[in-house]
Design a protein around this nucleic acid. Structure first.
Lengths: 181, 181
DNA sequence: CACGTAGGTGAACGATCGTTCGCTTATGGT
DNA sequence: ACCATAAGCGAACGATCGTTCACCTACGTG
């Protein structure tokens, strides 16, 4: 009697669209990317995007969720294998690795501000805060936390592969603020 | 024989347009702001903007120049009145004061990335670099500089008037990285 | 005072925007 | 094998984009 919950088709290109959107949002920002750009990058028709996402803002929210999820997952994984004073070290290394080598999803979270998309601002803000809350538990001191997060989140602007690794950058930053392992 | 260089009219609204553009670019970003938005905020017709600026990108460059100029001027003024180990303290306080209380021009420099506007990217990058070069002379150590600049430039995202003053924030940050007066 | 011009208006240009529509295709469950 | 339907296509919708055009107006100069 219950309407059979039909399983979505497997070879769907939803993931391809999401990847293309993440790459373009990270490169050009939200307003600098058009639905047609994303569709072309995904090898699809603009109209087909709306079979997977309700709107451009909804597509951004999906990218945001994936981005925050990846950063949070990297943080959790790093904290499982570390204890004591090495926890902060491991957390910052994981954060930087996700931002600098983890691809486009994480960078969208930094690049696109909630206020850029008023219709989705509340949901985006909630996603951002959910991660910051994790970090707040790890670094209770307000100004140390703002110092570290600000510096790390600016890294995609100057990082070049081939120089210091994300892990080394984390150690150099933490040395500077008097946290040693 | 030489064409008489006619003095531009005084009651021009060029400055009004520039102010409106700075405010909107800082609030909504470059692609999130239309020429019509700026014109309406300046109490003018969209077409009239083009008697003062060649294009939307040219308008952004003008805002950028003013923004970088204000940050650099604040830095110079602060350094004139300070010497010895207090120089860094004064510089960071001036930087933060301009960002947090200096209005919209400075925030546009942080909000709008050169890559957002490919046609003006080279000029925008040159303007950004001209300020970073001043700061590089002040803080030769690469990672300390990146740590401080990253943290300070993220401040507009969380600063709320009524809490610590920009000058106090600068002192708290510098304390954390082991710089005391 | 007459005149040239910077500054401004109102309307429109083609391009592109997010989104919707009707139709076709192909897939998975029965 | 059949059919309901998810997925995708081609085309178009109205709205808005940056910019340009022809024309008007008011001020500084000779």
């Amino acid at each position: 009697m219950v309407a059979a919950a039909r399983a979505p088709r497997q070879n769907s290109r939803r993931a391809v669209v999401l990847d293309a959107a993440a790459r373009l949002f990270a490169e050009r920002g939200y307003h600098g990317t058009s639905i047609r750009d994303i569709a072309a990058a995904a090898g699809i028709t603009p109209a087909a995007i709306y079979s997977h996402f309700a709107s451009k803002a909804g597509l951004l929210v999906a990218v945001y969720e994936e981005g925050v999820g990846r950063i949070a997952a990297a943080l959790d994984a790093a904290l499982e294998n570390a204890s004591g004073p090495a926890r902060l070290q491991a957390a910052c290394a994981a954060h930087l690795e996700t931002l600098l080598e983890g691809g486009d999803y994480a960078q969208v979270v930094l690049r696109v501000w909630p206020r850029d998309v008023p219709e989705a601002a509340a949901r985006l803000r909630r996603l951002r805060d959910s991660y910051e809350a994790r970090f707040r538990r790890l670094v209770p001191d307000k100004h140390l936390r703002l110092l570290l997060l600000g510096a790390m989140n600016a890294a995609p602007g100057w990082y070049r592969p081939g120089g210091e690794s994300p892990r080394e950058i984390a150690r150099l930053f933490l040395d500077r603020v008097g946290v040693h392992d």
